[in-house]
């Protein structure tokens, strides 16, 4: 078994609230410095920096995962992860037509930069990404699954955009197997307060918006796979995630 330190929730300069310096290349480098083996790039409502992230991660020996932090119509944040870059890019297009068109105000939210693996600006996303899509919470798991991905509610221990603060519970009809904790120390307290959490497995995500603030790796999972083959690691990871074994 290989022990793989992971962070499945990181934002790049495409997210309006993230630092411009947090390019995919910069994140991959800091990820490696912080001891991560696996890192998912999860910008708000977009996967457009994932291609650059995949290229940059290869250079640093980090296993990249293409993802998105999707905001549902109810303003609940959901982490969506994909086994392949192609699936994430296709999912991005499916979400793009369900986004609301509110122009981004750079003076308030900052620029939304799509860059290449060497930090060069390719385009700026004109519509604000950090806002609700038209997708309801109920629709999301099936949509993500149609693109081969898995998804779960983000930072359930936070008041802003957390499923528990917005809905007050985990709706039983929405089949989430996992949930993300921002602060691992909150687990016991939340389990007592919300019994519906007991059948969920808790994953960790830092929700880092600045590469230099990336925390030292602490959360890990174990996979029976050689760690030098990124595609094989992702295959093993998603197989384990789908079986509820992570």
């Amino acid at each position: 078994m290989s022990r793989l330190y992971y962070d499945f929730h990181v934002h790049s300069c495409l997210s309006p609230c993230a630092e411009d310096e947090s390019t995919p290349q910069c994140l991959a480098g800091f990820g490696r410095l912080c001891g991560l083996s696996l890192m998912a790039l999860t910008d708000h409502n977009s996967c457009k920096n994932c291609p650059a992230f995949f290229q940059a991660a290869a250079a640093y020996g980090l296993v990249p995962i293409a993802g998105m932090e999707l905001e549902t119509a109810e303003e609940i944040h959901v982490v969506c992860l994909f086994e392949t870059l192609a699936e994430a890019v296709a999912f991005d297009q499916a979400v793009a037509i369900r986004r609301r068109r509110i122009p981004n105000r750079r003076d308030i939210f900052g620029a939304q930069r799509v860059v290449d693996s060497e930090d060069c600006l390719l385009e700026e996303e004109p519509w604000l990404l950090a806002t609700a899509t038209e997708l309801s919470l109920q629709e999301v798991p099936a949509l993500v699954s149609a693109y081969g991905g898995i998804c779960y509610p983000a930072h359930i221990d936070r008041t802003a955009n957390g499923i528990l603060s917005i809905l007050g519970t985990f709706p039983p009809e929405v089949p989430f197997r996992y949930a993300e904790l921002h602060s691992p120390t909150q687990a016991q307290h939340l389990l007592q307060q919300y019994p519906s959490l007991r059948d969920k497995r808790l994953l960790y995500g830092s929700d880092t918006h600045a590469a230099a603030m990336l925390p030292e790796a602490t959360a890990y999972l174990e996979l029976d796979v050689p760690t030098d083959d990124a595609a094989a690691v992702r295959k093993a990871l998603f197989s384990a995630l789908r079986e509820g074994k992570v």
């Binding site: 905001e71 109810e74 303003e75 609301r100 509110i102 604000l128 806002t131 609700a132 008041t159 802003a160």
Partner: peptide, 23 residues
Amino acid sequence: LLSRVMGQAPAGCVWITIMTNSN
């Protein structure tokens, strides 16, 4: 619902809400 407020609240209004986070 902040996304709704963002698009619908008229400029110069008093906005009444129960949301209390930094957004």
